[in-house]
């Protein structure tokens, strides 16, 4: 285990790199801009300007955001004394890529177009290696247990032809892996972050699956162990109207996220509000460590803040491109720190 004072250089460097985070004023200016092009102009006045050459056309903000994220992740990875911290942050991107590739393989058998444009280079495993493994059906060299999970997911599809079952298996593998890595790192804030992520995913799953009308036994199989809220407590939510959820899990910090839902009558709106407040809840878990000049949690907090910033930028720019109402956009913006 790396001693706490082993993170001084990395944390200090990241504090300096935190100047790369867009401050509230910049976000508000972007949000207030009248058109997509004026928002892009404002963005090009920030440090995102260095990635302008990566844009394939004037509307390609995704390349801008991805380039910045890739740079930040690779820099953080290079300076982090314990590489497992950035690995932990990147794992969801690996599993996202696997989901994309599995779905691509499934849909291709039906002679549909490829969907590999949705792959992200933010994962631990390079996109090329993943594609090669899937194309050649040779998964032996894939790390993090992916060599077993990937063929298993494909075989689940063969047997059930149910994408939900495939997603369930991949999510279970992701959270098991995140839990085991967090346990091995032995850093309090990192463990809390993983537990909060599990809580957020579980609450999201319960709300979505209740909407699908799934029965309690099936919903239970979609929930993950290891969060602050036990599976048993989460299953109590199934038969409870959304208004009462905050009361049932009031003992956990995640209840704060539920209390931020303003409109319970509109399921679509409440789901959107819940998504936002669950992200804020996960952000909040890492908040107290920002004031510790030597806390290794700052590494994870910075990566997570950058990821949230990217989410906010996508929300604003997609909103501007589609003339979405400003208030709707504002309601979706997450807290960065």
């Amino acid at each position: 285990m790396i001693p706490k004072n082993g993170y001084t250089y990395a944390v200090s460097r990241l504090k300096a790199m935190a100047n790369r985070l867009l401050d509230n004023n910049s976000i508000i200016r972007l949000w207030e801009s009248e058109t997509f092009s004026s928002a892009m102009k404002l963005l090009s006045e920030t440090h995102y300007a260095q990635w302008l050459s990566e844009m394939k056309n004037e509307n390609d903000f995704e390349s801008l955001i991805s380039s910045e994220l890739n740079y930040v992740v690779s820099e953080t990875r290079s300076i982090s004394p314990d590489k497992r911290i950035p690995i932990l942050f990147q794992l969801p991107f690996d599993f996202h890529n696997i989901k994309v590739l599995v779905k691509d393989k499934i849909t291709r058998t039906g002679n549909q177009g490829r969907r590999i444009d949705l792959l992200t280079s933010l994962g631990n495993v390079s996109v090329e290696d993943l594609i090669l493994a899937v194309e050649s059906e040779d998964y032996r060299l894939l790390p993090f247990g992916l060599h077993a999970v990937l063929p298993e997911s494909l075989s689940i599809w063969e047997q059930s032809h149910d994408v939900l079952m495939v997603e369930k298996r991949l999510d279970a593998a992701l959270f098991e892996l995140m839990k085991s890595i967090a346990e091995s790192i032995e850093i309090e804030g990192v463990k809390k972050w993983v537990r909060a992520k599990i809580d957020a995913e579980n609450i999201r799953n319960v709300l979505r699956l209740v909407r699908f009308g799934l029965e309690i036994g099936k919903i239970s199989s979609f929930l993950h162990e290891g969060g602050f809220i036990s599976k048993e407590k989460l299953l109590l939510l199934v038969n409870e109207p959304l208004e009462g959820w905050g009361r049932l899990v009031g003992f956990a910090d995640a209840a704060m996220a539920l209390s931020e839902i303003t409109d319970f009558s509109d399921t679509e709106k409440s789901l959107t509000e819940l998504e936002k407040s669950l992200d804020d809840y996960v952000t909040g878990v890492l908040g107290p460590y920002r004031y510790d000049a030597f806390a290794p949690e700052n590494i994870l907090a910075f990566l997570w803040a950058k990821d949230i910033e990217a989410k906010n930028l996508r929300i604003i720019l997609v909103g501007k491109a589609n003339d979405v109402d400003k208030d709707v956009i504002r309601g979706l913006l997450r807290n960065v720190l």
Binding site: V11, S12, R13, K15, A16, I79
Partner: peptide, 13 residues
Amino acid sequence: IAGEAGAGIMTED
């Protein structure tokens, strides 16, 4: 300790 922190900052600035 201060030097390590300083090196981190000066790498960026």
